[in-house]
Write a protein that binds this DNA or RNA. Sequence first.
DNA 1: ACATTTTTGTTGCAATTGCAACAGATTTCT
DNA 2: AGAAATCTGTTGCAATTGCAACAAAAATGT
Lengths: 209, 209
Amino acid sequence: MDTNFDKKNFINNFKKNCKKVQIKKFAKGETVTTYIEKRNQICIILSGEVDLIRYDVNGNKTIIGHFAENDIFGEVFYPANTNNELFVTAAKKSEILFFTYNTLLDECKYDCNFHSELITNLSELFIDEIIDLNLRIELLTKRTIRDKLLAYFDILSKGSLNKIFTMPYNYTDLADFFSVDRSALMREVKLLIDEGFIKKDGRKITLLY
Amino acid sequence: MDTNFDKKNFINNFKKNCKKVQIKKFAKGETVTTYIEKRNQICIILSGEVDLIRYDVNGNKTIIGHFAENDIFGEVFYPANTNNELFVTAAKKSEILFFTYNTLLDECKYDCNFHSELITNLSELFIDEIIDLNLRIELLTKRTIRDKLLAYFDILSKGSLNKIFTMPYNYTDLADFFSVDRSALMREVKLLIDEGFIKKDGRKITLLY
DNA sequence: ACATTTTTGTTGCAATTGCAACAGATTTCT
DNA sequence: AGAAATCTGTTGCAATTGCAACAAAAATGT
């Protein structure tokens, strides 16, 4: 968003002023929550990082989402009738704010003078989340791994205003994020290097075009 | 959403009570809007259907999104620095409500007693949109065309509470939606029929398992 | 500091998918 | 009703990707 909305500040206010939120801490690897029953739960990450993971019937793991500080996630954003087991695990030591969307709309209205500001700012978080999801879809709909990589590099490069940038994912997670085979991803990265399009040093990528 | 939120009713109220909205009509095939400059524009479909389309540098067309009555879309949901030309065309004769998110937050606050209700209900639309996007990602991250089809059929079947249902897309558009080659999609559909998993009559699918 | 776990890098081969092309069916337009 | 446009169904072949497997490197835990 190109607004001057201060996300961090809002989340802090939320945490302090709203009596309906819970805050919990998680060690790396701990399960934060599972999306099984529909509780309209929404979570905001105060610190740390989490992965939203799906295991399908064949046991294939896919990282459906990766969330970091100030990001919002929760089973309220998922259709009720899904087949898969979704769960969220802490990728790092994390502190997470929990609340129930319906509670916020119904009860909170009456005893919380922060309410109006809350809903407005929550909308901003929703919009940010929609932007993230659209970005992901943008990448997933690219036809080849090469196109996914180039589009992703482009985003990171534009974001850092630099031809040199460091990817937030390692290659294993990047393959999950693209939903492609890791070895196929590595092969394509190598081809991009061999053909002179990029240079690579770990997660640090340099665009040569 | 499993709330009793009446989307249609809200949108009607919005249309009637808010002075900041514009309503325009489009014939099939007309361009509704393009996502070029960042105007924080949000649109809601009053009637009809639209496609959000991307043409990449090679001229490949992808349907990034398809929106129908009561759905929300707009360039506010897309990152500002994208490379692609996105535009929205009317798939059917459509009537569309336009507004600017920032205007709503800033100006509207003071002269519109409908404001608080508006923002709350808008949040519901945002959540619905997030659910749709997550559903799409769910499908796009399936490894094979077969898995995409089976997952999609599953959703449609659960939605209609029936093993028999009619797809909202034709096969050309379905291929776009999955971001796969149309002939490869047809081939896989045929295999599912030959192997006895499904029956098909045009867009009407019967699950045999 | 050392053992253990995770990630990287690589390869051959098989499976899946994309591409191109075209005929027939269906839908849309006038 | 007839013409034009779009969609369906199909195929051979090439390109891309997934799978399996393993060694080396790096990161993590105690």
